[in-house]
Structures are given as structure tokens and as C-alpha cells.
């Protein structure tokens, strides 16, 4: 499933989607950046409530397929610009982290 397909299946809002055809191969949830950096796999949909600029570098370096901000969180100023520049997809969901992960699990 691509990021674009996942976004529509989950009814997510799109903050930016510079790489919409990126394939999603798994998922990871977490807000501690070093945990995510060390444990998330390439191709994961990364679910977090962290909205600051540093999530862009983490997603880029851990090579996740997209960031999904849960719980209605929206990205801080400047995050979307940076993510677009480096090719990181960011989606937004109203679901809480548990419900969102459960939905992703069913879809992929």
C-alpha cells in the first residue's frame, strides 16, 4: 500500500506528501526520537505526537515511509517546508495513537 492510499483509507489530512507513491511495509509508534531512530524500520509508517522540526530529520534518516501525527496534532511552523524539501511525507489523524495503529495494522 502506498502512502497516498493509506492516507485515503485512514481519512487522514495531508500536511505534505512529496513522495506519495512510497510503499508502506510496516509501522512504528513512538515519541522518543532516539528510540524511533534506533528501532523503526525503513518503510514504516511512523505514528507520533511529536510536532517539532526534528521529526523531519528522524524520518528522513530512519527512512520511514511517512510520519502520521495522531491525536489531532498539527506540525509546528516550518516543519512542512522542511519535510517537502527533503521528501518526507506527513499525514495527520484525529485518532488516538492506539486506534490509529490498530487501523494501520488492519490495512497493511
Amino acid at each position: 500500500m502506498t502512502v497516498k492510499e493509506l492516507a485515503s483509507a485512514l481519512d487522514c489530512k495531508i500536511a505534505c506528501m512529496p513522495d506519495e507513491s512510497r510503499e508502506i511495509t510496516g509501522g512504528y509508534a513512538g515519541d522518543l526520537l532516539s528510540w524511533v531512530m534506533g528501532r523503526a524500520s525503513s518503510g514504516d509508517a511512523w505514528v507520533t505526537i511529536m510536532s517539532n522540526i526534528n521529526i523531519v530529520a528522524v524520518a528522513s534518516l530512519a527512512d520511514t515511509a511517512c510520519i502520521i501525527l495522531s491525536e489531532g496534532v498539527i506540525p509546528d511552523d516550518g516543519v512542512v517546508e522542511k519535510a517537502t524539501e527533503v521528501g518526507v511525507n506527513i499525514l495527520m489523524s484525529q485518532l488516538d495513537t492506539y486506534a490509529l495503529c490498530a487501523s494501520i495494522f488492519k490495512l497493511i
Binding site: 522518543l32 526520537l33 531512530m37 511529536m50 526534528n54
Partner: peptide, 10 residues
Amino acid sequence: LGFGAGMGLP
């Protein structure tokens, strides 16, 4: 900000 997990050096 999400840092300080003490996982960096490991």
C-alpha cells in the same frame, strides 16, 4: 522535544 531518552550513545 523528544530527546534525552539516553539511547544516543548506545
